[in-house]
Design a protein around this nucleic acid. Structure first.
Lengths: 254, 254
DNA sequence: CCGGTTGTTTCACAGTATAAAACACTGGTT
DNA sequence: AACCAGTGTTTTATACTGTGAAACAACCGG
């Protein structure tokens, strides 16, 4: 036994059928309505397999369909999200403080956490000038682009930068030495400022959220159109952002 | 083949390992931090199985853990929720209209959909007097209690009431004939009003959201402390709620 | 009426998830 | 200190169960 081929163990102690089902679910972050064959092409599985997985996901409410032939994310997902925010002081402290910061400076306030080589916006309060009302909560962004990404990277305890390089996360023209200098600067100052990095015409200030265990598990950012980030405003934004980040860090549940 | 025992086919064409993994996930709607054995007791599976499922969920970011030994819902869930709201006119029409309604009347506005024998609050805008800032989005409630539940039940195309009775959803003292009279009344009026049904001291008004396909797929409700639901206010609430529900129905994506 | 789509069902086979048991580690109790 | 009752983790043989090819059904536009 334990043949020469080792019988294709995937990684280690993980259930393949479940992985595939989760991959099916993750397809819905790109589009919110998908067909069976569409999904099977996306993840390279045979239709019948995907069909069975979808049927299973449907029994637990993770997937639903109004009209036959079109699948959508189900309501069970919502039930689970509510759990994220319910936890600890999130609703009593974190969200109110973010709102207060927004009211003080008028710009959009966002909260990011790191997940692998990316960051995820887990909460946001739109600026008073914003047109859109619902923030893109849950959206992923690169870790090496944008103020809050750099903060998360700068204050990360592990040598993440090296691992990202190995994994080929960076573009060919990426200057690692220069980037490390930037991170060192951010560590020294205690915050990051970026202009038009992630998005043209936009600027951002970000500060680390330092938990009671002295770990940086999140970043708080203030972002908006570059023309409102004048030198005078910038100073105000930095002070306010760092202050709020410190306050949130005292109760941050993660 | 096809032994007398039929080899315990679960239901039909569904993957057991995946069902179990999803059940593990659903455990997190009760508590937001769980231990391994805690989960294994909740769903009656052996520790090693749950451990493997959790490991699998972790690879895809559906579960995470800060400190060893404590599991939490992962960030992938957030990515999927954002998809729900991104869809169609949700962010451009539904949410703004709910906010406008709240601004007009000051009370909490909620949006519910039916899922099985329950209803789920899929969006909410807190009333101006509310203390809590983050609504319990994703929370489930009974279908036969509360104004929006009754609306969903009254305008449901299938004979849901009978099926719920068969399934034993109702308490022993439930008066079905009387309940059907109430539903008939709601159908006739086009809205529902309840006092202290789901919660003591609270009242609610709810109206059906009728889609372009002439189906009731959701209910819009206005709720608040019973003392603000005086006769004069009630009339205003009803008119405003029905009006907003009609408007939302014109674009409702589900 | 056909070829190109869908989504659904079936079925034999082998691969794979399973649970029991042994293991390692922690924190509290005697 | 030794103990015990909890954790989470790893390993293993066995048989259950997920797999994908192929056949099926239903739809659409040409």
């Amino acid at each position: 036994m334990a043949d020469q081929q080792e019988s294709v163990l995937q990684e280690r102690g993980t259930v393949r059928a479940v992985e595939r089902a989760l991959d099916v679910l993750l397809c819905f972050r790109t589009k919110d309505e998908l067909g069976l064959t569409e999904i099977s092409k996306m993840i390279g599985l045979h239709k019948s397999t995907v069909h069975r997985l979808l049927a299973t996901l449907e029994t637990r409410g993770f997937v639903r369909r109004e009209q036959t032939d079109r699948y959508r994310i189900g309501w069970s997902i919502l039930e689970l999200t509510s759990g994220i925010y319910r936890s600890g002081d999130f609703s009593t402290v974190v969200f109110p403080e973010m709102t207060a910061l927004r009211d003080r400076i008028g710009e959009t306030v966002s909260l990011y956490v790191r997940s692998g080589f990316e960051r995820i916006r887990i909460q946001a309060v739109e600026g008073i000038h914003a047109v859109r009302r619902v923030a893109n909560i849950g959206m992923r962004f690169p870790l090496h682009i944008g103020a809050s990404g750099k903060v998360l990277l700068a204050f990360c305890s592990e040598p993440l930068l090296d691992r990202m390089e190995e994994a080929g996360t960076f573009p060919p023209n990426f200057n690692k030495a220069e980037f490390e200098r930037q991170l060192e600067d951010i560590r020294k100052r205690g915050y990051a400022v970026t202009f038009e990095e992630r998005e043209a015409g936009a600027a951002a200030v970000a500060a680390p959220i330092i938990t009671r265990q002295n770990q940086v598990s999140a970043a708080l950012s203030v972002s908006g159109p570059i023309d409102r980030f004048s030198e005078a405003n910038l100073e105000r934004f930095i002070v306010a952002c760092v202050e709020s980040a410190n306050l949130i860090g005292k109760v941050f549940p993660f």
